[in-house]
Write a protein that binds this DNA or RNA. Structure first.
Lengths: 352, 352
DNA sequence: CTGAAGCGGTGAAACCTTTCAAGAATCCGG
DNA sequence: CCGGATTCTTGAAAGGTTTCACCGCTTCAG
């Protein structure tokens, strides 16, 4: 992993950027006209426009965004603060945001708070200084006092992957209760009566909601929670956490015939542990994941999972933000997407 | 996947942002002094500083980045244009970039060109307008004429994941020839004499380089390429491509005992195909992937792969860029990282 | 006692663009 | 050929920050 420096060279850089004035001088018009060519081409005569455009091209002129923004009072940037940029969920959301912004010629400043409040605040401040039109935030804590302050200073805010606590705040999220319900109902319909649930801490909103959904489904099927659900909480929602959870579930006296996992990485660990113990999937144990990450379908045993419309979430959030930043009389909206069950080979009926 | 709007509310937003002048008035000092408090606190007397800081806090003042940048001529932003923001490789690189930039209080504007030249150029222009200190670009084509123009206008450029064609250009990349060599050498040391290679088009630089490395290793071991290497080119470097490549390799008269894959997704397809045919890994067929993506180690048969120092690549690129943008007498550097072989269970000696 | 340097702060210029009232040029019908 | 409408273009102001020459005072070395 050692880096090697191969070759070197010296640099000398250009001194000063061309300004609109340089263009005006070259084209023999005033700066106002150049500005009009740039922003309201319809106002300027064909002939003049061509002259100016030629000057722009020959100088390689590029607008100075700062001056533009300072004067016009409006910027072309939007900020997003996500919890973890390495998480494919947020990456896909970001892609949706970016695509939507591109349609309005805006660009995205993407930052990752790593679930830390201090980083979230630091980025929030930097983005405000940049004069972003607004920010999409996947909040790192339940404390939302910063939100009012930020909005009071004129920066629009849309909550990402977190339902809004108030009708005064825009948000885009997914119905995690429904997701848990879908997973459990699917297994119940296959005939399972006793289900294991490898979950994360209920302090995490997503985990708490998914748990709620699972329990709801069991009750709706007329089962007693105490008889039909074996829950285990793991500290890390990754493959190792999954193996650990599996181990605990297998030690329970009355064994489960199916396992729901809080996310696909956890499910991966469960699958790995089952394979090591030569417990076949889905014949001896059904497994359902959550997130439907890209590799879920290409595992040696393709994984049944709950899909969230990640790209659409991003698009919706961007749309809301552009709308909120754009109009003075904006109607705040709370968008709630529905998750979807993707059935693959890892789930089947329980053994006879 | 249908979205539902749950509740609504109306908005009313603040009229005007606080300026440095408001702070000065409240604190009873001049704007120059406030500016000094902000930028050179050492220059201003303790007492005055405290007064000003109190005023800033009580007004909730946030610097206007545009005005600052316009006057100071320097910004706090850096742009990055990557080929695919959904690719974990680039995500991890981005994280490295971001972390490094944070140390210097800079922020990252991240854009994805999706391998399209038009998008690359569009983003390049927008970033220039924003007045970024510089851009990290993973180029979408071999045409680098834009680079000189961009630099002539004063924007620093560092190539990402592409070795620089000239000593006048900074770049950070990984030695893909070495990576191919590592994979092949590993298999040769295990005793394999006849190896399959599922590769992408050699038009892709990474694929061409890795192929070069594989062939080099075989020659170094005294083997004839014609006898020891069976190559197959697949159109898509994903799981389906892998299955397709595997199928072709298995049809060859003199069978291979090991397979090298152009990336881990391809390897996933190969593994899946082998499993379906009940060919055991690694006993009957050894498999080596490339990239060491996160799930490589948690597959049902953990995958031997070639790791690239993604995070470090990002950090290095950011460092180079900050350096190039910062100093007038910058020495251009071409950093080449070395890949690393990660041995897991999918590779073993050939069957007797 | 003098001149220079240090201190803490001031106020105006400069950065580059957009905006807009007003002026110039052109064109039309009468 | 004129008055007036229409179409283009101009010039200057405005926007918020940083920078820098400068000011009046104190301190200190010579």
């Amino acid at each position: 992993m050692a880096a090697t420096v191969e070759r070197m060279g010296r640099s000398s850089r250009a001194p000063r950027r061309r300004s609109i004035k340089d263009v005006a001088d070259l084209a023999g018009v005033s700066v106002g006209t150049v500005s009009n060519v740039l922003n309201k081409p319809a106002l300027v005569a064909e002939e003049t426009r061509i002259k100016v455009e030629a000057a722009i091209a020959s100088l390689g002129f590029v607008r100075n965004g700062s001056a533009r923004q300072l004067r016009a009072g409006t910027s072309q940037t939007v900020g997003a603060i996500v919890l973890d940029i390495s998480n494919p969920f947020f990456t896909d959301v970001a892609r949706g945001v970016e695509d939507r912004l591109a349609e309005d010629d805006h660009i995205l400043i993407l930052a990752s708070s790593d679930d830390r409040l201090d980083k979230q605040h630091r980025y929030l401040r930097l983005l405000e200084e940049q004069g972003v039109q607004g920010v999409l935030v996947s909040p790192a804590s339940n404390d939302l006092t910063w939100l009012d302050q930020t909005r009071a200073r004129g920066t629009a805010v849309v909550l990402l992957d977190r339902p809004s606590p108030s009708p005064q705040i825009c948000s885009v999220a997914v119905d995690d209760v429904k997701g848990g319900d879908l997973a459990a109902t699917h297994l119940l319909e296959l005939g399972h009566q006793r289900i294991g649930f490898v979950n994360g801490s209920t302090k995490i909103r997503q985990c708490a909601d998914r748990r709620k959904g699972v329990r709801k489904a069991l009750r709706a099927a007329g089962l007693r929670i105490a008889d039909s659900l074996v829950e285990t909480t793991v500290s890390a929602l990754n493959a190792d956490g999954g193996e650990e959870g599996l181990e605990r579930l297998l030690r329970v006296s009355e064994p489960v015939t199916a396992i729901i996992c809080a996310n696909d990485l956890t499910a991966l660990g469960v699958l790995r542990g089952l394979r090591r113990r030569r417990i076949s999937v889905p014949e001896q144990m059904a497994v359902v994941g959550y997130d439907d990450v890209e590799f879920a379908g290409v595992l040696t045993t393709p994984l049944t999972s709950i899909r969230q419309p990640r790209y659409q979430i991003g698009r919706a959030a961007a749309t809301l933000l552009l709308n909120e930043a754009g109009s003075r009389t904006h109607r705040h909206e709370q968008v709630l997407f529905q998750p979807e069950l993707i059935v693959r080979e890892s789930s089947g009926p329980p053994a006879r």
